[in-house]
């Protein structure tokens, strides 16, 4: 069987790729995609820990399902806000959203 650490390394890599995407991308939709990657790395973690831990305790699985549901809700609100900005200002580039500044 594949050792648990492989899954954890994979999930950490996925998390880092997602975080890198969030911090460097300028397109708002791409930023949301980066967040999705990070959320999926959490799911990989949860599923792996559940499988290699106490399999009869379903907390890990339940947690992963709830993460899915919440991620969908978050991204739908995010895309709605992106669309409302796009309609008014014709841009989805995060750098252009600079009306509120110090």
């Amino acid at each position: 069987m594949v050792p648990l650490s492989w899954y954890l390394i994979f999930s950490a890599a996925l998390f880092s790729v997602g975080l890198f995407g969030v911090l460097t991308r300028r397109n708002a939709v791409a930023i949301l995609l980066g967040v999705e990657l990070m959320l999926n790395s959490v799911n990989v973690n949860l599923a792996a820990f559940w499988r290699y831990g106490n399999v009869t305790d379903i907390a890990g699985q339940v947690f992963a399902i709830i993460v899915f549901a919440v991620a969908a809700a978050e991204v739908s609100v995010g895309l709605a806000l992106v669309i409302s900005i796009y309609r008014k200002r014709n841009t989805v580039i995060a750098d252009d959203l600079d009306m509120l500044k110090f």
Binding site: A28, I31, V42, N45, F63, L81, V82, I85
Partner: peptide, 23 residues
């Protein structure tokens, strides 16, 4: 939009912490 971006990023990082606690 700014609130959402900061918010989901922060909660996702926290969630990663939760998954490790669980593990």
């Amino acid at each position: 939009f700014k609130y959402l971006l900061f918010g989901i990023l922060a909660t996702t990082v926290m969630l990663y912490g939760f998954s490790l606690v669980f593990g």
